[in-house]
Design a protein around this nucleic acid. Structure first.
Lengths: 176, 176
DNA sequence: GAATGCATGTAAAGAGTTACATGATTAA
DNA sequence: TTAATCATGTAACTCTTTACATGCATTC
Protein backbone atom coordinates (compact mmCIF):
# COMPACT_ATOMS: atom_id res chain seq x y z
CA UNK A 1 0.00 0.00 0.00
CA UNK A 2 2.60 2.52 -1.12
CA UNK A 3 0.14 4.99 -2.61
CA UNK A 4 -1.00 5.86 0.87
CA UNK A 5 2.55 6.49 2.02
CA UNK A 6 3.44 8.48 -1.04
CA UNK A 7 0.47 10.76 -0.39
CA UNK A 8 1.37 11.00 3.28
CA UNK A 9 4.93 11.97 2.34
CA UNK A 10 3.85 14.64 -0.12
CA UNK A 11 1.34 16.10 2.32
CA UNK A 12 3.90 16.09 5.13
CA UNK A 13 6.09 18.28 2.94
CA UNK A 14 3.29 20.65 1.88
CA UNK A 15 -0.44 20.57 2.67
CA UNK A 16 -2.31 20.53 -0.64
CA UNK A 17 -5.41 19.33 -2.48
CA UNK A 18 -6.00 16.27 -4.63
CA UNK A 19 -5.40 18.16 -7.83
CA UNK A 20 -1.95 19.34 -6.75
CA UNK A 21 -1.12 15.85 -5.53
CA UNK A 22 -2.05 14.45 -8.93
CA UNK A 23 0.27 16.88 -10.68
CA UNK A 24 3.08 16.20 -8.27
CA UNK A 25 2.81 12.48 -8.88
CA UNK A 26 2.97 13.15 -12.59
CA UNK A 27 5.95 15.48 -12.48
CA UNK A 28 8.12 14.24 -9.62
CA UNK A 29 7.35 10.66 -8.72
CA UNK A 30 6.13 9.13 -11.96
CA UNK A 31 9.53 8.62 -13.55
CA UNK A 32 11.27 6.46 -10.97
CA UNK A 33 9.28 6.18 -7.80
CA UNK A 34 5.52 5.69 -8.15
CA UNK A 35 2.61 6.74 -10.29
CA UNK A 36 -1.09 7.30 -9.70
CA UNK A 37 -3.91 9.09 -11.46
CA UNK A 38 -6.52 11.32 -9.88
CA UNK A 39 -9.11 8.55 -9.97
CA UNK A 40 -6.95 6.60 -7.56
CA UNK A 41 -5.88 9.56 -5.45
CA UNK A 42 -9.27 11.05 -4.52
CA UNK A 43 -10.80 7.86 -3.12
CA UNK A 44 -7.59 7.10 -1.23
CA UNK A 45 -7.62 10.55 0.36
CA UNK A 46 -11.15 9.88 1.57
CA UNK A 47 -10.09 6.59 3.11
CA UNK A 48 -7.09 8.23 4.77
CA UNK A 49 -9.38 10.92 6.13
CA UNK A 50 -11.62 8.22 7.54
CA UNK A 51 -8.61 6.49 9.09
CA UNK A 52 -7.55 9.73 10.73
CA UNK A 53 -4.19 9.95 8.95
CA UNK A 54 -4.96 13.28 7.29
CA UNK A 55 -7.32 16.18 7.92
CA UNK A 56 -8.75 19.14 6.03
CA UNK A 57 -6.65 22.13 7.05
CA UNK A 58 -8.07 24.68 4.63
CA UNK A 59 -10.65 25.21 1.92
CA UNK A 60 -9.57 26.73 -1.38
CA UNK A 61 -11.47 29.34 -3.35
CA UNK A 62 -13.67 26.92 -5.34
CA UNK A 63 -14.38 24.62 -2.44
CA UNK A 64 -11.24 22.53 -2.87
CA UNK A 65 -10.04 20.71 0.22
CA UNK A 66 -6.49 21.24 1.36
CA UNK A 67 -5.25 18.23 3.29
CA UNK A 68 -2.60 18.08 5.98
CA UNK A 69 -1.08 15.17 7.88
CA UNK A 70 -2.31 14.46 11.42
CA UNK A 71 -0.11 13.26 14.27
CA UNK A 72 -1.11 9.59 13.70
CA UNK A 73 -0.44 10.14 10.01
CA UNK A 74 3.04 11.39 10.74
CA UNK A 75 3.68 8.37 12.98
CA UNK A 76 2.52 6.00 10.28
CA UNK A 77 4.68 7.72 7.65
CA UNK A 78 7.75 7.55 9.89
CA UNK A 79 7.09 3.91 10.72
CA UNK A 80 6.94 3.05 7.03
CA UNK A 81 9.94 5.18 6.06
CA UNK A 82 12.16 3.48 8.62
CA UNK A 83 10.77 -0.05 8.22
CA UNK A 84 13.22 -2.72 7.00
CA UNK A 85 14.11 -2.56 3.31
CA UNK A 86 12.68 -5.76 1.90
CA UNK A 87 13.22 -6.98 -1.62
CA UNK A 88 10.89 -4.48 -3.23
CA UNK A 89 9.96 -6.32 -6.46
CA UNK A 90 10.41 -3.56 -9.01
CA UNK A 91 8.62 -3.21 -12.34
CA UNK A 92 10.45 -1.62 -15.18
CA UNK A 93 9.46 -2.24 -18.76
CA UNK A 94 12.69 -0.90 -20.13
CA UNK A 95 14.76 -3.33 -18.10
CA UNK A 96 12.35 -6.13 -18.90
CA UNK A 97 13.02 -5.71 -22.61
CA UNK A 98 16.74 -5.86 -22.08
CA UNK A 99 16.45 -8.96 -19.95
CA UNK A 100 14.60 -10.65 -22.80
CA UNK A 101 17.18 -9.63 -25.38
CA UNK A 102 18.08 -13.20 -26.31
CA UNK A 103 14.67 -13.61 -27.95
CA UNK A 104 15.73 -11.34 -30.82
CA UNK A 105 18.03 -12.06 -33.71
CA UNK A 106 21.26 -10.11 -34.09
CA UNK A 107 20.05 -7.24 -36.28
CA UNK A 108 16.96 -6.65 -34.13
CA UNK A 109 19.06 -6.86 -31.00
CA UNK A 110 21.36 -4.17 -32.27
CA UNK A 111 18.42 -1.98 -33.33
CA UNK A 112 16.82 -2.24 -29.91
CA UNK A 113 19.91 -1.69 -27.78
CA UNK A 114 21.02 1.17 -29.97
CA UNK A 115 17.59 2.79 -29.70
CA UNK A 116 17.72 2.34 -25.93
CA UNK A 117 21.15 3.85 -25.60
CA UNK A 118 19.99 6.87 -27.57
CA UNK A 119 16.79 7.21 -25.60
CA UNK A 120 18.63 6.97 -22.27
CA UNK A 121 21.18 9.50 -23.42
CA UNK A 122 18.44 11.98 -24.29
CA UNK A 123 16.92 11.60 -20.85
CA UNK A 124 20.31 11.76 -19.14
CA UNK A 125 21.04 15.06 -20.84
CA UNK A 126 17.63 16.41 -20.01
CA UNK A 127 18.15 15.58 -16.35
CA UNK A 128 21.63 17.08 -16.54
CA UNK A 129 19.94 20.33 -17.51
CA UNK A 130 17.44 20.08 -14.69
CA UNK A 131 20.20 19.49 -12.14
CA UNK A 132 22.12 22.51 -13.40
CA UNK A 133 19.05 24.70 -13.33
CA UNK A 134 18.27 23.74 -9.75
CA UNK A 135 21.85 24.33 -8.67
CA UNK A 136 21.95 27.77 -10.29
CA UNK A 137 18.53 28.89 -9.19
CA UNK A 138 18.70 27.81 -5.58
CA UNK A 139 22.29 27.01 -4.67
CA UNK A 140 21.84 27.33 -0.93
CA UNK A 141 18.12 27.00 -0.34
CA UNK A 142 17.78 23.80 1.71
CA UNK A 143 14.18 23.30 0.55
CA UNK A 144 15.37 22.74 -2.99
CA UNK A 145 17.83 20.13 -1.84
CA UNK A 146 15.17 17.45 -2.09
CA UNK A 147 14.23 18.07 -5.69
CA UNK A 148 17.96 18.19 -6.37
CA UNK A 149 18.34 14.75 -4.84
CA UNK A 150 15.61 13.41 -7.08
CA UNK A 151 16.97 15.07 -10.21
CA UNK A 152 20.47 13.84 -9.43
CA UNK A 153 19.15 10.32 -9.05
CA UNK A 154 17.50 10.56 -12.44
CA UNK A 155 20.66 11.89 -14.02
CA UNK A 156 22.74 9.06 -12.63
CA UNK A 157 20.14 6.46 -13.48
CA UNK A 158 19.81 7.40 -17.13
CA UNK A 159 23.57 7.65 -17.48
CA UNK A 160 23.78 4.12 -16.14
CA UNK A 161 21.19 2.90 -18.59
CA UNK A 162 22.99 4.57 -21.47
CA UNK A 163 26.42 3.26 -20.48
CA UNK A 164 25.11 -0.19 -19.85
CA UNK A 165 23.29 -0.31 -23.19
CA UNK A 166 26.50 0.78 -24.95
CA UNK A 167 28.44 -1.88 -23.12
CA UNK A 168 25.89 -4.55 -24.11
CA UNK A 169 26.23 -3.39 -27.71
CA UNK A 170 29.99 -3.89 -27.52
CA UNK A 171 29.57 -7.36 -26.10
CA UNK A 172 27.19 -8.27 -28.89
CA UNK A 173 29.58 -7.03 -31.55
CA UNK A 174 32.43 -9.00 -29.99
CA UNK A 175 30.70 -12.34 -30.44
CA UNK A 176 29.88 -11.71 -34.08
CA UNK B 1 0.18 -6.09 -20.48
CA UNK B 2 3.83 -6.82 -19.87
CA UNK B 3 3.28 -10.14 -18.14
CA UNK B 4 2.28 -11.61 -21.47
CA UNK B 5 5.42 -10.31 -23.14
CA UNK B 6 7.65 -11.41 -20.32
CA UNK B 7 6.27 -14.95 -20.64
CA UNK B 8 6.63 -14.80 -24.41
CA UNK B 9 10.25 -13.72 -24.02
CA UNK B 10 11.11 -16.45 -21.55
CA UNK B 11 9.43 -19.11 -23.68
CA UNK B 12 11.17 -17.86 -26.81
CA UNK B 13 14.47 -18.48 -25.05
CA UNK B 14 13.53 -21.93 -23.72
CA UNK B 15 10.25 -23.86 -23.97
CA UNK B 16 9.14 -24.70 -20.44
CA UNK B 17 6.19 -25.27 -18.14
CA UNK B 18 4.40 -22.90 -15.78
CA UNK B 19 6.33 -24.07 -12.79
CA UNK B 20 9.67 -23.28 -14.40
CA UNK B 21 8.40 -19.92 -15.57
CA UNK B 22 7.34 -19.10 -12.02
CA UNK B 23 10.81 -19.88 -10.70
CA UNK B 24 12.44 -17.89 -13.47
CA UNK B 25 10.36 -14.85 -12.66
CA UNK B 26 11.36 -15.19 -9.06
CA UNK B 27 15.08 -15.61 -9.68
CA UNK B 28 15.82 -13.50 -12.75
CA UNK B 29 13.17 -10.90 -13.38
CA UNK B 30 11.79 -10.13 -9.93
CA UNK B 31 14.59 -7.83 -8.82
CA UNK B 32 14.56 -5.17 -11.54
CA UNK B 33 12.27 -6.10 -14.36
CA UNK B 34 8.92 -7.66 -13.47
CA UNK B 35 7.35 -10.00 -10.98
CA UNK B 36 4.48 -12.47 -11.07
CA UNK B 37 3.34 -15.42 -9.01
CA UNK B 38 2.11 -18.78 -10.31
CA UNK B 39 -1.52 -17.77 -9.73
CA UNK B 40 -1.10 -15.07 -12.32
CA UNK B 41 1.07 -17.10 -14.69
CA UNK B 42 -1.13 -20.19 -15.19
CA UNK B 43 -4.30 -18.32 -16.22
CA UNK B 44 -2.28 -16.05 -18.51
CA UNK B 45 -0.70 -19.07 -20.23
CA UNK B 46 -4.20 -20.40 -20.89
CA UNK B 47 -5.26 -17.12 -22.42
CA UNK B 48 -2.14 -16.97 -24.56
CA UNK B 49 -2.83 -20.52 -25.71
CA UNK B 50 -6.34 -19.44 -26.66
CA UNK B 51 -4.93 -16.46 -28.54
CA UNK B 52 -2.56 -18.72 -30.45
CA UNK B 53 0.61 -17.07 -29.18
CA UNK B 54 1.95 -20.22 -27.57
CA UNK B 55 1.41 -23.96 -27.99
CA UNK B 56 2.03 -27.17 -26.05
CA UNK B 57 5.21 -28.64 -27.49
CA UNK B 58 5.71 -31.47 -25.01
CA UNK B 59 4.19 -33.19 -21.98
CA UNK B 60 6.36 -33.79 -18.94
CA UNK B 61 6.38 -36.90 -16.74
CA UNK B 62 3.55 -35.87 -14.38
CA UNK B 63 1.34 -34.40 -17.05
CA UNK B 64 3.01 -31.03 -17.07
CA UNK B 65 2.61 -28.96 -20.20
CA UNK B 66 5.72 -27.58 -21.86
CA UNK B 67 4.90 -24.45 -23.81
CA UNK B 68 6.65 -23.01 -26.81
CA UNK B 69 6.12 -19.82 -28.80
CA UNK B 70 4.20 -20.00 -32.09
CA UNK B 71 5.00 -17.90 -35.17
CA UNK B 72 2.32 -15.30 -34.31
CA UNK B 73 3.70 -15.28 -30.76
CA UNK B 74 7.16 -14.52 -32.04
CA UNK B 75 5.78 -11.72 -34.21
CA UNK B 76 3.96 -10.20 -31.27
CA UNK B 77 7.05 -10.43 -29.07
CA UNK B 78 9.20 -8.78 -31.71
CA UNK B 79 6.62 -6.06 -32.27
CA UNK B 80 6.57 -5.26 -28.57
CA UNK B 81 10.33 -5.44 -28.11
CA UNK B 82 10.92 -2.94 -30.91
CA UNK B 83 7.96 -0.66 -30.16
CA UNK B 84 8.78 2.95 -29.18
CA UNK B 85 10.15 3.43 -25.69
CA UNK B 86 7.48 5.43 -23.93
CA UNK B 87 7.78 6.88 -20.49
CA UNK B 88 7.41 3.60 -18.66
CA UNK B 89 6.08 4.80 -15.28
CA UNK B 90 8.23 2.80 -12.91
CA UNK B 91 7.39 1.70 -9.39
CA UNK B 92 10.19 1.46 -6.92
CA UNK B 93 9.54 1.60 -3.22
CA UNK B 94 13.18 2.21 -2.40
CA UNK B 95 13.33 5.29 -4.59
CA UNK B 96 9.95 6.44 -3.33
CA UNK B 97 11.27 6.59 0.21
CA UNK B 98 14.22 8.64 -0.84
CA UNK B 99 12.02 11.04 -2.78
CA UNK B 100 10.00 11.62 0.38
CA UNK B 101 13.06 12.23 2.51
CA UNK B 102 12.08 15.75 3.46
CA UNK B 103 9.23 14.39 5.59
CA UNK B 104 11.73 13.13 8.17
CA UNK B 105 13.69 15.09 10.74
CA UNK B 106 17.48 15.15 10.54
CA UNK B 107 18.29 12.18 12.79
CA UNK B 108 15.71 9.95 11.07
CA UNK B 109 16.90 11.11 7.69
CA UNK B 110 20.44 10.10 8.51
CA UNK B 111 19.29 6.75 9.87
CA UNK B 112 17.32 5.96 6.73
CA UNK B 113 19.88 7.03 4.15
CA UNK B 114 22.65 5.29 6.04
CA UNK B 115 20.60 2.09 6.20
CA UNK B 116 19.91 2.37 2.48
CA UNK B 117 23.54 2.91 1.56
CA UNK B 118 24.45 -0.18 3.56
CA UNK B 119 21.67 -2.25 2.05
CA UNK B 120 22.59 -1.20 -1.48
CA UNK B 121 26.23 -1.95 -0.82
CA UNK B 122 25.38 -5.47 0.33
CA UNK B 123 23.42 -6.08 -2.85
CA UNK B 124 26.09 -4.49 -5.04
CA UNK B 125 28.68 -6.84 -3.59
CA UNK B 126 26.42 -9.83 -3.98
CA UNK B 127 25.90 -9.00 -7.65
CA UNK B 128 29.65 -8.41 -8.02
CA UNK B 129 30.07 -12.04 -6.93
CA UNK B 130 27.43 -13.25 -9.37
CA UNK B 131 29.08 -11.41 -12.27
CA UNK B 132 32.46 -12.90 -11.40
CA UNK B 133 31.02 -16.38 -11.12
CA UNK B 134 29.36 -16.13 -14.51
CA UNK B 135 32.53 -14.78 -16.12
CA UNK B 136 34.66 -17.58 -14.68
CA UNK B 137 32.20 -20.37 -15.34
CA UNK B 138 31.30 -19.52 -18.87
CA UNK B 139 33.73 -17.00 -20.25
CA UNK B 140 32.98 -17.66 -23.89
CA UNK B 141 29.61 -19.37 -23.90
CA UNK B 142 27.34 -16.94 -25.77
CA UNK B 143 24.23 -18.37 -24.07
CA UNK B 144 25.43 -17.09 -20.73
CA UNK B 145 25.95 -13.62 -22.12
CA UNK B 146 22.35 -12.75 -21.39
CA UNK B 147 22.42 -13.63 -17.71
CA UNK B 148 25.70 -11.72 -17.59
CA UNK B 149 23.98 -8.66 -19.01
CA UNK B 150 21.31 -8.87 -16.36
CA UNK B 151 23.77 -9.42 -13.53
CA UNK B 152 25.93 -6.57 -14.74
CA UNK B 153 22.92 -4.30 -14.78
CA UNK B 154 22.14 -5.25 -11.20
CA UNK B 155 25.72 -4.64 -10.13
CA UNK B 156 25.76 -1.19 -11.70
CA UNK B 157 22.33 -0.32 -10.39
CA UNK B 158 23.07 -1.15 -6.78
CA UNK B 159 26.40 0.65 -6.96
CA UNK B 160 24.51 3.70 -8.18
CA UNK B 161 22.05 3.45 -5.33
CA UNK B 162 24.85 3.11 -2.81
CA UNK B 163 26.88 6.00 -4.22
CA UNK B 164 23.87 8.21 -4.50
CA UNK B 165 22.76 7.49 -0.94
CA UNK B 166 26.28 8.31 0.29
CA UNK B 167 26.24 11.54 -1.68
CA UNK B 168 22.85 12.49 -0.23
CA UNK B 169 24.25 11.82 3.23
CA UNK B 170 27.13 14.22 2.53
CA UNK B 171 24.72 16.91 1.33
CA UNK B 172 22.65 16.52 4.47
CA UNK B 173 25.70 16.85 6.72
CA UNK B 174 26.79 19.97 4.86
CA UNK B 175 23.65 21.90 5.70
CA UNK B 176 23.80 21.09 9.42
C1' DG C 1 5.94 -43.70 5.27
C1' DA C 2 6.94 -38.85 5.81
C1' DA C 3 8.75 -34.81 4.07
C1' DT C 4 10.13 -32.15 0.25
C1' DG C 5 9.71 -30.56 -4.21
C1' DC C 6 7.19 -30.70 -8.66
C1' DA C 7 3.08 -29.18 -10.91
C1' DT C 8 -1.35 -27.00 -11.53
C1' DG C 9 -5.24 -24.80 -10.55
C1' DT C 10 -9.33 -21.41 -8.41
C1' DA C 11 -11.39 -17.61 -5.43
C1' DA C 12 -11.50 -13.43 -3.26
C1' DA C 13 -9.69 -9.22 -2.26
C1' DG C 14 -6.87 -5.30 -3.28
C1' DA C 15 -4.51 -2.08 -6.40
C1' DG C 16 -4.31 0.38 -10.66
C1' DT C 17 -5.99 2.12 -15.33
C1' DT C 18 -9.26 4.01 -18.56
C1' DA C 19 -13.37 6.07 -19.53
C1' DC C 20 -17.21 8.76 -18.32
C1' DA C 21 -19.03 12.90 -16.11
C1' DT C 22 -19.59 17.48 -14.08
C1' DG C 23 -18.97 22.22 -12.80
C1' DA C 24 -16.28 26.50 -11.34
C1' DT C 25 -12.76 30.01 -12.41
C1' DT C 26 -9.55 32.54 -15.09
C1' DA C 27 -7.12 34.33 -19.01
C1' DA C 28 -7.34 35.54 -23.92
C1' DT D 1 -17.42 34.29 -24.87
C1' DT D 2 -14.78 30.61 -25.39
C1' DA D 3 -10.90 27.91 -24.32
C1' DA D 4 -7.89 26.32 -20.87
C1' DT D 5 -7.10 25.10 -16.34
C1' DC D 6 -8.73 24.02 -11.80
C1' DA D 7 -11.10 20.63 -9.13
C1' DT D 8 -13.58 16.50 -7.95
C1' DG D 9 -15.80 12.50 -8.42
C1' DT D 10 -17.75 7.42 -10.10
C1' DA D 11 -17.91 3.00 -12.93
C1' DA D 12 -16.03 -0.62 -15.29
C1' DC D 13 -12.35 -3.12 -16.26
C1' DT D 14 -7.79 -5.11 -15.82
C1' DC D 15 -3.94 -6.51 -13.22
C1' DT D 16 -1.81 -8.22 -8.97
C1' DT D 17 -1.58 -10.47 -4.46
C1' DT D 18 -2.89 -13.70 -0.97
C1' DA D 19 -5.08 -17.62 0.38
C1' DC D 20 -7.10 -21.95 -0.42
C1' DA D 21 -6.71 -26.50 -2.62
C1' DT D 22 -5.10 -30.82 -4.78
C1' DG D 23 -2.17 -34.63 -6.21
C1' DC D 24 2.06 -36.98 -8.06
C1' DA D 25 7.11 -38.15 -7.70
C1' DT D 26 11.23 -38.43 -5.38
C1' DT D 27 14.27 -38.70 -1.56
C1' DC D 28 15.35 -39.76 3.25
Amino acid sequence: MSLRHALLGLLADTPQNGYDLTKRFESTLSGHAWSAGHSQIYPELKRMLGDGLIEVVDEGSRGSKVYGVTAPGRDELRRWMLSPLGEAPARNEFVLRLFLLSALDRPDMRTLVDQMAGHSDDLAQELEGVVKMIEEHAPTDPTYNYSRFAAEFGRRYYSLQRDWARWVLEQIEKTD
